[in-house]
Design a protein around this nucleic acid. Structure first.
Lengths: 255, 255
DNA sequence: ACGTTTCTATGTATGGTGTACGTAGTTTCG
DNA sequence: CGAAACTACGTACACCATACATAGAAACGT
């Protein structure tokens, strides 16, 4: 309808790329390469050496092809990264349907959290438009189910899902950046545990009263993100949010 | 103490850069350039043409200096971007102290949200370690105050602040990327409003039941983020979270 | 006042990047 | 068996961050 002809072509290209809308060429030889193969190679490189290491040349070398061959299947590096991020995300977990919606949501959050820690580079892929990858949408769909089942109307479920996605994404961004997980070449990751000390020595207590007040209660254990366990830094907020949602639907049904 | 000597030098450099720990050289000529001037120029470039346009050459040109001159004041582009992001964030607003903590927090959220929409490029600056910039810490401090005043103990206040920061950051990332605000050269921004349609036409309802169910309730008005008004997509989640926090402290004080 | 020291700003150079373009070769269709 | 069409490749270009050496000017000690 009102689709703008000039510039949404890149979205269209993203879509056809992500959803494998490959044209069936007739005449020429069939390519042994494919978007999937290229994306998987990119994922492999990113896993090994971080997102910065992902260059067209490196990916091509990984596959044993020349650099420019990739451009027969992928229009640009940006698009490739987008596909790689979706591939790297993988399929969402199947949530426990029997469980109450809190448990299900926590399960989802834990899985996404674990995923971001396993592939921190996904968080460094610049977002260029709304999520339209099959895997990304699958994750979203899986989260929406328990929210809808809990009694939230569509728009609110959408907002709640956005909230949770944003929380995990944002928290993981901060968390992984602090622990230096985003660069794998670094050898071992370095945790900025003692950062608090360094900073609080510089801070003027008059200007940053709350921070200096907090200073004592610093840094509980990081905790292991295995299973459904969430680290306190993430779990507290999620639990408070779920409290709020619970109260909201309860109040609504009571009325 | 246990500071690792090999690799936290970059953190140290970040700190001295961000906190203007300039050594007072004696002999040579005083430089007319400074970290602040360079960072401001970078901000100007990013405001005008987006983060991708920020190159050392461009920033130097903006100042009328040669490219390599910048390296006398800034050790690397990464560090420069970090400083520019902090400078671009600016000082946090003074929150209404008289107001209840909900109003204060909403005020803070609205301000940060507005800031991210004004300078979307800040969200594209890669995070390399914990936030240590003066402005970033000032924002954090301002948020912690109402949370502490509401009765949260230190660790929980910290977690809540992280939650809120992550929410605004993550939501803004998705939101600005959807509307294409991150690239200013583009001419006018393009909203992916009709994205939902495009996608839902491709989706297999069997695999994405929740998404197709939602499909009807799509896209309320974006709303204007002026003053304390939050768009629904952000406000709903924040309000539910605040509900939860409120209930939490109430339950705790009752016990 | 002067020489010496020391820092600034610059120019050059290197290895990397994404990708536009032309071309050779090969596979499949008519 | 042509002929059409597509793949993979090599070359080339503009741009990037930054290592290094150099020239020059400013401020200090005398």
């Amino acid at each position: 309808m009102t689709t703008r002809d000039s510039k949404d072509s890149d979205l269209q290209r993203s879509l056809t790329l992500l959803w494998a809308g490959r044209r069936r060429g007739q005449r020429g030889p069939r390519s042994r390469l494919s978007v999937e193969l290229i994306a998987q190679a990119a994922v492999r490189v990113a896993d090994a050496d971080g997102l910065e290491a992902v260059s067209m040349q490196r990916v091509a070398a990984e596959l044993g092809y020349s650099t420019m061959s990739l451009y027969n299947h992928v229009p640009s590096k940006d698009l490739l990264l987008e596909v790689a991020a979706d591939v790297g995300a993988g399929a969402p977990p199947d949530l426990d349907e029997a469980a109450d919606f809190r448990a299900a949501v926590r399960q989802w959050v834990a899985a996404l959290w674990a995923g971001f820690h396993q592939r921190p580079w996904i968080l460094r892929v610049p977002l260029d438009h709304a999520p339209v990858g099959p895997h990304q949408l699958a994750w979203l769909d899986r989260l929406l189910r328990p929210l809808l089942a809990a009694g939230l109307p569509g728009a609110e479920a959408r907002a709640a899902a956005l909230h949770l996605t944003a929380v995990v994404r944002g928290t993981a961004q901060i968390s992984t950046s602090m622990s230096g997980e985003h660069k794998r070449d670094n050898g071992f990751p370095r945790t900025d545990t003692d950062l608090a000390h360094v900073v609080t020595e510089l801070l003027d207590p008059a200007e940053y009263p709350a921070l200096t007040a907090i200073h004592a209660a610093e840094l509980a254990d990081p905790g292991q993100p295995d299973g459904d366990a969430l680290p306190f830094e993430l779990g507290f907020g999620v639990d408070r949010f779920l409290d709020g949602v619970e109260g909201w639907v309860a109040a609504k049904s009571r009325r």
